[in-house]
Amino acid sequence: MNNNYLTVEQFNQFIQQWSGKTIKITKQELGDQDSIIMKLDDISYHKDTRRIDDYEPMHSIHLIGEGTTEIDAQGGVPLPASSYEIPLEDTTQYQFDDIRFSLVTERGTYTIELYG
Rank of each mutant, 00 (worst) to 15 (best):
A73M: 09
I71K: 13
D54N: 14
D90W: 01
H46V: 03
L40D: 01
D90I: 02
E66F: 03
D48I: 10
G20H: 01
D42W: 03
G31H: 05
R100F: 00
E70N: 11
G116L: 08
L63F: 12
T7V: 12
T105H: 07
E29P: 01
I64C: 07
S19K: 15
H62R: 13
Q28M: 09
R51M: 10
E85T: 13
M38S: 04
G65S: 02
D53C: 10
R50C: 09
Q17H: 13
V77S: 11
L30V: 02
I61F: 01
T26G: 01
E66R: 10
Y84A: 02
F11Q: 07
R100W: 02
D54Q: 13
I43N: 08
D72Q: 08
W18P: 07
E29I: 09
Y5W: 09
S60W: 05
S44T: 13
Q17G: 06
Q17P: 05
E113Q: 14
T26M: 10
A73R: 13
Q93I: 10
L114M: 10
Y45S: 03
G67Y: 01
E106L: 08
Q33M: 11
D42E: 12
Y115N: 15
I15T: 07
I36Q: 01
Q13K: 15
M1I: 03
G65W: 05
L103R: 02
S60P: 03
I64W: 02
I61C: 01
I15L: 15
D32V: 13
D54E: 15
I61W: 08
N3V: 04
Y94V: 08
L114K: 14
Q74S: 14
Q10G: 07
G31T: 00
I52G: 00
L30K: 15
Q95S: 12
I86R: 03
I64N: 02
F101N: 04
A73K: 13
L63H: 01
K24D: 06
Y94S: 06
L114V: 00
E106I: 05
D41Y: 04
L63W: 03
G67P: 05
D54H: 15
S82T: 03
M38F: 03
E89N: 07
D97H: 09
S44F: 03
I61M: 11
